[in-house]
């Protein structure tokens, strides 16, 4: 089973190709503005190295967020178009899961962090399992203060991974049961491994059903002092 995986939910974008979860080609780019220009040349590079053609792909896997950048949508649109063109089913994964899987060691509860910008962070708890992780609660978008309180109330030891460096240092003071670790960003390599497992269990979907995970409402600023709704005709 030949898989193409695409990651654009954080400043680090990456693509990978591989067979049944083992990676044969990969390309990474850390530049939060460069997603659109990076993706297709990177995919083409991987294909050229492996001697693959687009039609050789059986599964297209993509990270559907949460992620703060408009780049997330460029990865999803790329994956959708690719899957539609070659008639391949898709596998979707959450950025939080991708980060947590790489951190899966020991017995600590794992808290991946994605910087959503403007002082907000997407988080979710995971439980380590042999060879993977299992969700252990719902994802949330929180402030660093709220996250600190959450970790303080935890009875067990915790491992925070992902982009925790984007949180203020004060977040970590006095948290004795908390360790911080890597990876900082999700990667296409990990998506490929997860996708191989999901696809083998039949957990695939159609390109039409893919939606980004936003976890917050769009920014809308209405100037209510000058905004007049319908019916304002001065009669």
């Amino acid at each position: 089973m030949n898989i193409l995986s695409i990651e654009t939910s954080t400043p680090a974008s990456s693509v990978a190709i591989g067979i049944d979860g083992s990676v044969t080609g990969m390309s990474v780019n850390v530049d939060r503005r460069g997603h659109v220009g990076f993706l297709m040349p990177a995919i083409d590079f991987c294909f050229a190295r492996a001697g693959w053609k687009p039609r050789d792909i059986d599964i297209v896997a993509v990270d559907i967020g949460p992620g703060p950048y408009t780049g997330l949508r460029s990865g999803i649109a790329t994956a959708q178009a690719f899957a539609a063109a070659v008639g391949a089913p898709m596998v979707t994964v959450s950025s939080l899961t991708v980060i947590a899987v790489r951190a899966a060691t020991g017995r600590r509860r794992i808290w991946p962090v994605v910087d959503m910008r403007r002082g907000q962070f997407a988080i979710a708890p995971f439980r380590p399992l042999p060879g993977g992780v299992a969700p252990d609660g719902s994802p949330e978008v929180v402030s660093p203060e709220y996250f600190k309180a959450l970790l303080e109330s935890e009875g067990s030891d915790s491992l925070v991974v992902g982009d925790w460096e984007a949180m203020p240092d004060a977040t970590w003071t006095g948290l004795h049961k908390v360790r911080k670790g890597r990876p900082r960003y999700p990667s296409a390599e990990t998506i490929l491994e997860i996708a191989a497992r999901k696809a083998s269990k039949g957990m695939v979907t159609d390109a039409d059903n893919i939606r980004p995970t936003y976890m917050r409402e769009p920014d809308v600023q209405i100037n209510w002092s000058t905004f007049r709704s319908e019916g304002a005709w001065p009669s």
Binding site: H35, R55, R73
Partner: peptide
């Protein structure tokens, strides 16, 4: 609008590439 353009452009580019 940059975010709007990116959706169509990314989609079109991947479609063109994978169709050759």
């Amino acid at each position: 609008l940059v975010g709007a353009l990116m959706v169509g452009y990314s989609f079109a580019k991947a479609l063109a590439y994978s169709l050759g």
